[in-house]
């Protein structure tokens, strides 16, 4: 589905991502784990096109995306849920979701979105900025979903969200994967959440992958060592 080869990216003079290779399979949930400052967010930003790619390739279903602008990558089937949600605070919940719709949709939010996130239906007339952190996270996912992506990029979805909601979020994401038949690439620091949802996980350190394992053979202790400060 998504194939990334020898990806280099960074800001200004400093390179943060040093040649990453990975593939996200059909309907696979792949987690990228690592401490703060190891390059997770930069990786995600370079995938969606907010941070320019220096070299390497990003292919989605055989389509080369690395030189494209963000909105074109979205049209090709990538969708992005940024770290810290970054919904549009003064737009209503419904308007926030509609920003992700393409021109052909006629501006109506599809029913399945409110099916997955009933709380957003209840709050659809409220301003996005007045929602709680967990609700904003659901809103950011809904906004990304309505563009009908084949790969969903989720950057630290559990950050700043209370533990009871995190469990629910894991269930929701798996439900979305099954319902919409999409692949998910998620970055995380919370190991329990990752073990809940991911089929496979990668550990990133200083812009390189240092560890890879399938969920069934994860050695939780060794991963925890990578994540401890």
């Amino acid at each position: 589905m998504l194939e990334v080869r020898n990806l280099h990216a960074g800001y200004g003079q400093s390179e943060v991502i040093h040649g990453l290779d990975f593939t996200v399979g059909d309907s696979e949930i792949l987690a990228v784990m690592g401490r703060n400052g190891m390059g997770k967010t930069t990786l995600f930003k370079s995938l969606i096109g907010i941070v320019p790619v220096r070299s390497g390739s990003i292919q989605l279903k055989g389509q080369e995306l690395s030189g494209e602008e963000s909105f074109r990558r979205v049209r090709h089937g990538l969708a992005y849920v940024p770290q810290g949600r970054l919904i549009f605070p003064t737009l209503t919940v419904e308007e926030n979701i509609r920003t992700g719709l393409d021109a052909a949709s006629g501006g109506t939010v599809p029913d399945y979105v409110y099916g997955i996130f009933p709380v957003l239906h209840d709050m659809r007339k409220r301003r996005g900025g007045n929602l709680s952190g967990g609700q904003q996270q659901q809103l950011a996912i809904a906004r990304a979903l309505v563009s009908n992506p084949s790969v969903l990029l989720l950057d630290e979805p559990t950050e700043g969200i209370q533990p009871s909601i995190i469990k629910e979020l894991a269930r929701t994401l798996k439900r979305i994967r099954d319902l919409r038949q999409l692949s998910i690439l998620v970055s995380e620091q919370v190991l329990s959440f990752t073990l809940e949802i991911a089929d496979r996980l990668l550990v990133i350190e200083k812009g390189h992958f240092v560890h890879e394992s399938r969920r069934e053979d994860v050695d939780a202790d060794s991963i925890a060592r990578y994540l401890s400060v």
């Binding site: 969606i48 907010i50 909105f71 969708a79 992005y80 920003t99 990304a144």
Partner: peptide
């Protein structure tokens, strides 16, 4: 930036 990343030209 985010407007672009949700698909707005």
């Amino acid at each position: 930036l985010i407007a672009g990343a949700v698909g707005i030209d």
